[in-house]
Design a protein around this nucleic acid. Sequence first.
RNA 1: GGAGGCGUGGUGUAGUCGGCCUAACACGCAUGCCUGUCACGCAUGAGAUCACGGGUUCGAAUCCCGUCGCCUCCGCCA
Length: 579
Amino acid sequence: MSFRTVWANQLDLSLAGSEVTIAGWVQRRRDHGGLIFVDIRDRSGIVQVVAEPQSAVFPLLDGLRAEYVVSITGVVQKRPEGMVNREIASGDVEIVPTQVRVLSQSKTPPFMPQEAESVDELVRLKYRYVDLRRPSLFNNFRLRDKVLYSLRTFFHEQGFLEVETPALARSTPEGARDFLVPSRVQPGAFYALPQSPQIFKQLLMVAGFERYYQIAKVFRDEDLRADRQPEFTQIDVEMSFLEREDILSLMEMMMKRVFADGLGVMLEDFPRMSWEQALRLYGSDKPDLRAGEPLVDLTETARQLDWDVLAKAPHVVGAVCRQYQPSRKQLDQWNQFAKDHGASGLIWLILNEDGIRTSASKWLSPDDLSRFADTAGMRPGDTLFLVAGAKPLAFVVAGQLRLEFARQENRMESGWKFLWVTEFPLFEWSEDENRLVSAHHPFTMPMAEDIHLLTTNPLAVRSEAYDVVLNGIELASGSLRIYQPEVQEKIFSVLGLSHEEINEKFGFLIQAFQYGAPPHGGIAFGLDRLIMLMAGAKSLRDVIAFPKTARGTDPLMEAPAPVDSRQLDELGIQIKPQS
RNA sequence: GGAGGCGUGGUGUAGUCGGCCUAACACGCAUGCCUGUCACGCAUGAGAUCACGGGUUCGAAUCCCGUCGCCUCCGCCA
């Protein structure tokens, strides 16, 4: 006797009269004294079982409680006239049981799966297996599986090999804090869990694998957010003998395939934008194209003024809010918003049929005002916010204002707004360390036309790096890699790494590149973020089966946890008392 | 490292400017009644260290100090 012959959502009128066996959990029991209804839930849906007192299995149904696991055999019966439930797939029918097997009893659960939505997340994580029973969560994993299947099919068709790389690797400088794993065999030495399989995948290119991918777990010991977990999954890709364009179009094809297979959505071609453009047009390296029009650069218009605050500002950036007439209080709030984000203040212009109101009426003539309004493309009813300041700041603040306005006023367009951001700077200045650091990572290839600036003006050097941005979220990041050892050494020296450090940290990579490295490049997508966006989930926790809390703990296993002193002894580790 | 929000039966909340709280309501749970429900209905009942520790007070869920936990954001995340 099998546990199950059909899924709950397969039951419909076509099966009326036939005998079936269903298996699942008791979702609810409705006891009418003489008549008992029991809803049975499996991962496909729900079906109603009904029994009258004269039924041989009536006492068994009577004894069922929430979340008992049962297998029920019975005859599918068309529901009486007017008793159809349109809410569930099997709502036309019900099962009249002939055999009820209680496979497993359940204690009263801390919460019912169907009410979990409103339950405290800590409780849900502690009883994650109950939480995961609710369809809305389960469906995220169905989608995740679909996407992974689609990805693997795509990669396989395109000649990629799925290759696993070590989880026990070595700590590398630069980048996020590593999770360390002590070695027992080499006392005092540590492995590091990979922040990405970066070096391994490049070594695979040197090895001639040509096209590699991996659904790779990676680890970063940094503080967490709704969209950040300490361990997460990357779609890691690397390929040889391809130009940047080839890589971008292949990866774009991949995303289109995934959205078609996963959601039935046909994506349009992704627009391209340089990092410089992204900053100037959206004040961000991950523009959200749903949030309306780009910023307007009004620096030139400001130059003509007598008023130094604007005329002498390095940049004056405008954000146009269409059909928006803010109140006095709202204007104050926007001003505070700008200050909170580092601007010295905010100038506003409100255009109406009867003229322009402004916070700068003392300094700007009517002519000045209309020049601004014209240049910014204002129409009656619009509000223009101006931010003056230095290069990144003025754009960034205006960009954040643009975003926040769209959010607050519900102006976000719907849909999937992808874009490529390219030509990132190769280096950034680190105030903390008082030195240049890699913007992407130290193996990123500089753009050929900028190589001559490496020593003279390194901050102006652009790189062959590219990001995929979806709805304002960084989804993927990649680059062409340096494959000439002399260029790599040059980069290391600009980064201020000594030969000893280079040899100690990256010697193996430099050495590998001396044995025939092909031109290569790659990219890594955040799989969890992708699924989160596709599923419309608010947190990564909703697309990871057993996620960690914001403090990095797992309430279910109660990890991390202290270990036995014998384990520490074996590792030669002593715990310092907390000060 | 910093900021904010939250913490009251199993779950969700009310009560929080000190007393009428011997802590309320809904869901859940238990028992009984009920033959067409699907958030079944009705009745009865059990169930609470008011996160933890300290303090103020005649009196603390409520005020003060500290700690812990959860969530969100900034820093951080090549």
